[in-house]
């Protein structure tokens, strides 16, 4: 047990997990499971699937902790694993090529996200509220979750072309609303 001030950081916990520390996994779990479960729940109605996705996410952390390269937030890395796990459930059979292409870089907080932090209280928020539900879903999938067109299509159950066209429409409407 450590005597240093305060609790260990997330990155420290990952390092300990890489060392085989089960207690560190427990701590990481109690810190992150609540928000991760809530977030997955908003993208998938089935509670059993949500529980499995969250479980598999932390299992992946336990089995391959060195995938975290120390860049960006651990929370973002966890979300990356979770959303990919969810996607994999919806489209389980992927070709080798797709899987190669899919090795993604770290999910860094984007400019859009930084803006959306304040969304509720700003014009952007009101503008977004005026979008129809389908357009909003596409914006969330591509902008907030950082998914590619193909992945967003898989998640929402629509063709990639539709994702693209809805994104353009959403951008148009937002630009108009903000002018």
């Amino acid at each position: 047990m450590t005597l240093d001030q305060g609790a260990p950081s997330d990155a420290e916990l990952i390092a300990r997990i890489a060392d085989g520390d089960r207690g560190a996994l427990h701590t990481l779990f109690t810190r992150h499971q609540p928000w991760l479960a809530a977030r997955v729940r908003r993208r998938c109605a089935d509670p059993a699937v949500v529980a499995e996705v969250v479980n598999d996410t932390f299992l992946a952390v336990w089995q391959q902790p060195t995938r975290y390269k120390g860049e960006g937030e651990v929370a973002a890395w966890l979300w990356g694993i979770a959303i990919r796990t969810l996607l994999h459930r919806l489209r389980p059979r992927k070709s080798v090529f797709e899987r190669l292409v899919q090795s993604r870089p770290q999910h860094h907080p984007s400019a859009e996200e930084a803006v959306l932090v304040q969304v509720q209280h700003s014009d952007v928020g009101q503008a977004l509220q005026k979008l129809s539900p389908e357009l909003l879903a596409v914006v969330q999938a591509t902008v907030i979750d950082g998914l590619t067109t193909r992945e967003a299509a898989a998640l929402l159950g629509i063709p990639s072309g539709t994702v693209k066209s809805r994104m353009s429409r959403a951008r148009l409407e937002l630009r108009e609303a903000l002018l």
Partner: peptide, 8 residues
């Protein structure tokens, strides 16, 4: 030994 049960 709960924390180290999976360390060699």
């Amino acid at each position: 030994l709960a924390d180290v049960m999976h360390q060699k």
